Amino acid sequence: MQLSDFNFNLPDELIARYPLASRSASRLLHLDAQGQYHDHQFTDLLNLLEAGDLLVLNDTKVMKARLKGKRATGGAVEVLVERLQDQFIAHCHIKASNSPKAGAELFIGPDAVKVTVQGRHENLFIVEFSQPILDVLDAYGQLPIPPYFNREAEAIDTERYQTVFNDPTKLASVAAPTASLHFDEALLQQLADKGIQKTFVTLHVGAGTFLPVRTDDIANHIMHSEWCEVSEAAVALIRETKARGNKVISVGTTATRAVESAAQAHAGKLAAWSGDTQIFIYPGYQFKVVDRLITNFHLPESTLLMLVSALSSRENVMQAYQHAVAERYRFFSYGDAMLIDQAQT
């Protein structure tokens, strides 16, 4: 399957660069198991899901991971913390006029917090902070909002680029699990009142989620690595849901990758698991856990678009995207949503 198979024309004005006033006010395009699509509001999930169904949500929290600083020579640098190794050492992306060498010292914020480059691991720099990293991020960091917003992070992003159910002890992502941004407390309560259950998994989203696919044959693409965890409690709820004939609905591509990785790690049978995943889901993949997917509209030629196409089909998804463009749906992280059913075979 070729990269160009996942291209489509997206007018710039359909990119949602700011959130709506209300989280749950988004539209929802339902792509059913027969490949037919239906226009809804996001709150129509109350009618589209059944009592006994299970929502699987990613409870990670986004770090204020973008830091601006200077080199010892005075040149500007930008440090994006990708992954915490411990309290003081992190793997980072660094933007500078020249790539810093091992031993280079960078200085963050007005207090000139020292950051020393230790070396590299693949495409990331390994750096040591002179103060606890999370303290530095809290004091000087900016939320790393997606590059396609074409703007700096603003006050509104502090609340709206986080889920309402994020776990503060899981502060480790550099991008939000954006399908979950549509849920507010009121909607979650209404779903619970109907008998729709929820469980949480964790996948710490890396900046690699925004990296383009650079191979014409998508099967040759190598996914970035992200850490995830699926608990015994989540596994038990998923098994119980399937045993009684209800649906497992993953909220977002990250929750999907987490539970499918846990199954993949155990020869296709879901079990508790934690570790790094590089799972790449594209058409032809056989889902082990997920029955339905709530997701946003994704970038052309992205691995996320390939994942959602695997659950339905490339043809079904691309036709639904054409409809979404024609009907002026809002795209990407702050945009509208889709509910995708696994295609009947």
Score class of each variant (00 low, 15 high):
67 L>M: 06
48 L>K: 10
93 H>Q: 13
38 H>C: 01
92 C>P: 00
37 Y>N: 04
48 L>P: 06
45 L>K: 03
36 Q>A: 08
45 L>A: 03
67 L>E: 13
43 T>N: 13
73 T>K: 11
96 A>M: 00
86 D>V: 10
86 D>C: 11
81 V>H: 05
60 T>P: 03
35 G>H: 11
47 N>L: 11
41 Q>M: 12
69 G>M: 09
68 K>V: 08
42 F>R: 05
68 K>E: 13
94 I>F: 05
100 P>N: 09
86 D>Q: 09
103 G>E: 08
61 K>M: 15
81 V>D: 11
36 Q>V: 08
93 H>I: 14
52 G>H: 12
101 K>Q: 15
70 K>Q: 13
62 V>G: 07
62 V>Q: 10
51 A>T: 12
89 I>V: 15
65 A>T: 02
37 Y>P: 00
83 R>D: 03
102 A>L: 02
98 N>L: 10
84 L>M: 15
84 L>E: 11
44 D>Y: 03
96 A>K: 00
36 Q>N: 11
49 L>E: 02
58 N>M: 05
59 D>R: 12
34 Q>A: 13
61 K>A: 14
74 G>K: 09
101 K>Y: 06
58 N>S: 05
42 F>N: 05
93 H>Y: 13
51 A>D: 13
42 F>I: 09
61 K>F: 02
38 H>M: 03
99 S>H: 11
49 L>T: 12
103 G>F: 06
38 H>D: 10
80 L>P: 04
62 V>D: 12
44 D>P: 03
65 A>L: 03
81 V>S: 07
74 G>V: 10
55 L>K: 05
89 I>D: 15
58 N>G: 02
38 H>V: 01
61 K>N: 01
52 G>K: 07
76 A>K: 14
66 R>H: 11
101 K>G: 01
66 R>E: 11
88 F>P: 01
59 D>S: 02
39 D>T: 07
95 K>Q: 14
67 L>T: 09
63 M>D: 04
71 R>M: 12
76 A>S: 14
92 C>Y: 02
94 I>K: 04
90 A>Q: 08
50 E>D: 15
56 V>P: 06
69 G>V: 04
92 C>Q: 06
49 L>P: 00
64 K>H: 14
55 L>I: 01
96 A>I: 06
55 L>T: 06
56 V>K: 05
89 I>H: 15
41 Q>F: 13
56 V>F: 09
65 A>C: 01
44 D>N: 10
58 N>I: 05
65 A>N: 03
52 G>P: 08
44 D>G: 02
80 L>D: 07
87 Q>H: 07
94 I>N: 02
70 K>S: 12
85 Q>W: 06
93 H>K: 13
51 A>K: 12
79 V>N: 00
43 T>D: 10
59 D>L: 00
49 L>N: 00
48 L>W: 09
70 K>A: 04
48 L>S: 07
82 E>I: 08
90 A>R: 06
75 G>M: 04
80 L>C: 02
88 F>G: 07
62 V>T: 11
96 A>H: 04
56 V>D: 07
80 L>I: 11
73 T>E: 09
36 Q>W: 00
53 D>T: 07
68 K>D: 12
91 H>M: 10
78 E>P: 05
66 R>V: 13
91 H>N: 13
37 Y>Q: 03
97 S>E: 09
41 Q>P: 00
